[in-house]
Each structure stands twice: as structure tokens, then as C-alpha cells.
Design a protein around this nucleic acid. Structure first.
Lengths: 139, 139
DNA sequence: TAGCCCTGCTCTCATTTTGAGACCAATGGC
DNA sequence: GCCATTGGTCTCAAAATGAGAGCAGGGCTA
């Protein structure tokens, strides 16, 4: 009917033509990395300006060094992030968004803005759900 | 400078004012659920039309029944999905997008469309990365 | 009336992913 | 010599996920 339904049908169609399974749906394959636990947050930080490894670590203190390394490498592999090593002593590494990363982030921004504008509505929905659940449990 | 950087700064600012940690960043808290491994896919399917539990299971065969139940409950809790039980024998359950779910999905769509249009570019970037890595390993 | 199937789940256990923190090499300052 | 810096990797524990059995309540068929 509308673009929304058409897109869903298209993705489902792509999906169902492949008996091998959903891993082969190309759209999902691309989106999956952006949906990683830390990906969006790092992209958001890097959208502001380039940062060094240690700076990212300080800006996002609840990420482990291990996951920071891994997430940055995944984003670099997909072409969203550029990694540049400077021959200082000790060597420093700077991460920045590529043009493709900026292009993708512009699309991601719509969802982030929706979230900013609807935090209260989502929290209200959660509250209603939890209250209803507690009520039915207490019966 | 632009909206992109302003939004990042805003989120980082919200974040840094809370010594308790990033879990309290309201935007991240909301977005996290949409970024779940199966959330976007289910939203996309439900954007087409309402479906019953078993239908969703057949449409997305590589999701486990456990994760389907759990993801649908999370989406329902956040107010994106409506769950309705019909008193048939045996009872059947229908899941559909709420108005809020549709509103959110419209924002998510931008990213999905970007992915559809850039699958080839991402795959090319991955190929370059993997080739470079293999080359440096073989040195 | 026994046995089997359907619905939409939940429970258990194995595998995978993530987190916490130690360790590393090279260098600079004291 | 000794400790701190850089950007990592390695190991082991905890958490999330997958695979598959079990379950309740009915309707079929025989």
C-alpha cells in the first residue's frame, strides 16, 4: 500500500527467496553492524569531531577497552570510520567519520531525533505495562 | 556546528552530567530496544500488516521461539506493538503496530532505505578491509 | 475414552557475546 | 631504575542467545 509496507514486503521477499536463511538478506546484513550495542553511540560521538582512542574511552566510560577496539574495527571495516596512526611517541591513533559514515549517520539521525522527542512517551508506556503486569500478578 | 554535532554534544552532555553512567542517558535508553538483534526485523514485518505469533515464527524462521516472545514483549512494553488475544480454541494472539510504533518506524525507515541503497558500497568496503588485512598478515 | 494435534508460550542447558581486568612493548620524565 | 603514557591483546567470568523439550487447554479422530 505505502512505501513502508512495500519496503517490508521487499525485504521479506528477498529473504524468502533464499532457503539458506536470513543471514543472506543483504539489508539486514548491513544494518546489523549499525545496530550493535555500541555502534550508534560511537558514531554519534565521532559525528561531532574526530577523536583519539583514549578520548573515546573517556567519553564513553562504560565501554570496555575490548569492545571499543572491536566496535571501531567493525565500523572501519564497513567503511564508516577512518583510522589514522600518527607517528608520535608513543604513537597515537585518530578515528574519524568517512563520507560514507556521515551519509549513513544522516539517516540514523532521524531515529535518534525521534527518540529524543519521545523519551517521555516511551517511559510512560513502560510504566503502564509494568503497572498492568504488577496488577495481574497481584490478583 | 550543524545539527549533527549539536545532537551529539547534547547527548554527550546529558551523559556526562550523570556520574551514575551511561545507562541513564534517556535517548540511549530508548534507542537500545529498537537496536535489539530482532527488533527492527519484527517491526518491519509488522509494518506490513498485523501477524499472529505462529505467522511471525514462519516469516522469520531463524528466530528462536524464546527470542520472538521476548522481543515482542519488549516492543509491547515500550508501546510500539499491540498484543491482542482472540478467544478462539485454542486462543490465538495477534500483534500489530501502534500509532507510536508506526511513528517510530517512519524514522527508522530512513536508515533501512540507506542500507538498501548502499549494500554494495558496504560490501566493497569490507572486501577492501579484508584484503588489506590478509596482505599485511602475509607480509 | 485414549491418543494426537493445535495454539502460544516457558524451562533447561549449551554456545556465543560481552565485561573486568591483567598484561605488553616502546618511550619520556624524574 | 621506576613509573606513567600510548593503543592495544589475552584470559576468565558473567550475561545474552540458540536449540529443543515440556506444558495447559481444548478439539479432533477412532
Amino acid at each position: 500500500m505505502d512505501a513502508r509496507a512495500a519496503s517490508a514486503r521487499q525485504m521479506i521477499a528477498i529473504y524468502r527467496t533464499r532457503p539458506e536463511g536470513l543471514e543472506n538478506c543483504p539489508v539486514r546484513n548491513v544494518v546489523q553492524n549499525v545496530f550493535g550495542k555500541w555502534s550508534a553511540l560511537l558514531l554519534m560521538v565521532l559525528a561531532e569531531k574526530p577523536y583519539r582512542f583514549g578520548e573515546l574511552r573517556r567519553l564513553v566510560p562504560d565501554i570496555s577497552q575490548r569492545m571499543l577496539t572491536q566496535t571501531l574495527r567493525d565500523l572501519q571495516r564497513d567503511g564508516y570510520v577512518h583510522r589514522e596512526v600518527f607517528p608520535t611517541k608513543p604513537p597515537s591513533v585518530e578515528y574519524s567519520l568517512t563520507d560514507m559514515g556521515r551519509s549513513m549517520f544522516d539517516s540514523l539521525q532521524h531515529l535518534l531525533h525521534w527518540a529524543e522527542n519521545n523519551v517521555a512517551a516511551v517511559h510512560a508506556a513502560r510504566q503502564r505495562f509494568d503497572d498492568a503486569e504488577a496488577g495481574s500478578n497481584a490478583t
